[in-house]
């Protein structure tokens, strides 16, 4: 009985899983961009997303401005936080081991997480910023209703992934970013301002985190903690792309979104999503990151 009820839920859960995957992809693309250009695994990525999203919440929900205004301010806030992290703490640590920088991002995680808790309340529920109407349409040939907000999320995720790839491949700043990613010293010799390019990657990556945060809030519990720990889902997706390949990161994010959602059709046990993430991290680290594994290009 249960299994039949579960199976009939699957098409609807596919939509939810893909939307979740789209948001993870958005967060993971920023993470990969920052990692490739500056070599820093940004554990504060989720916290930046959370903080920017609360800025949008302040503008749109508390002050009553339209949703798009909140989104724009959030993107700006995300970029500013990213810039501050890079200029204030990453630049002085140039040449230090990667793990030191990772621990610094953990410090930022604590700072942003606590600051948001003080400003907007730590454990309370917050009304999400609704950018697009929740009304939807029936997917042709099925009974599944797809919300316009859900469709928007997936389209924005795919669009930004493609745009990032295009910028990296066809524009000057994108070429400069790839050059810095490959060899900062050589890039500097070619006249590239490495500091500026690194800062740009932090700003762009953090701005994408802001978009991901604003889009994800209607889907998950909107509090300071849940968004901060989305970073581990973004990491999982990015690890599937070996922290380098954007297309595989998007594929990984979609897979993770679906893998987290499907088990919920069959069991009400809480934390199944985390179980899936944990298992996937283990498998990916064991298989893809074995010593001497092949390197993949950024685009």
């Amino acid at each position: 009985m249960l299994a039949i009820a579960g199976t009939s839920l699957l098409p609807g859960f596919t939509v939810i899983g893909l939307v979740l995957g789209g948001v993870y992809a958005l967060a993971a693309i920023g993470l990969v961009l920052i990692f490739r250009v500056s070599g820093v695994l940004n554990f504060a990525h989720g916290a930046v997303a959370m903080f920017a999203t609360f800025v949008a919440y302040q503008i749109s929900v508390v002050n009553g401005a339209p949703g798009w205004a909140g989104l724009l301010v959030a993107i700006a806030a995300g970029a500013v936080v990213g810039l501050l992290v890079e200029v204030l703490t990453m630049r002085p640590l140039a040449g230090k081991p990667a793990l030191t920088k990772v621990v610094v991002t953990i410090g930022w995680l604590l700072v942003l997480q606590t600051l948001a808790g003080i400003l907007w309340g730590a454990n309370a529920y917050h009304r999400p910023v609704q950018l697009v109407s929740r009304a939807g349409f029936r997917f042709p040939g099925t009974h599944v209703v797809v919300g316009y907000d859900q469709l928007t999320t997936v389209l924005v995720a795919l669009g930004l992934a493609l745009a990032t790839a295009a910028v990296l491949r066809y524009t000057t700043i994108g070429t400069a970013m790839r050059a810095v990613a490959d060899d900062p010293a050589a890039a500097r010799l070619w006249g590239i301002n490495v500091n500026r390019v690194t800062a740009a990657s932090w700003m762009a990556g953090s701005a994408m985190a802001a978009v991901a945060g604003v889009l994800i809030t209607p889907l998950i519990n909107f509090d300071t903690f849940s968004l901060t720990v989305v970073v581990i889902d973004a990491f999982t997706a990015a690890l599937i792309g070996r922290l380098t390949s954007l297309p595989w990161t998007v594929v990984g994010a979609m897979f993770l979104g679906l893998a987290q959602t499907y088990p919920r059709a069959f069991s009400s046990q809480s934390g199944l999503g985390e179980l899936v993430t944990f298992g996937l991290v283990l498998v990916v680290l064991a298989v893809l990151f074995r010593p001497g594994g092949r390197r993949i290009r950024l685009v």
């Binding site: 554990f43 934390g271 179980l275």
Partner: peptide
């Protein structure tokens, strides 16, 4: 990364 995944797995599951 793995230890973060472990911590969240403990917290939520």
């Amino acid at each position: 990364i793995l230890t973060v995944a472990v911590a969240l797995f403990f917290d939520r599951f």
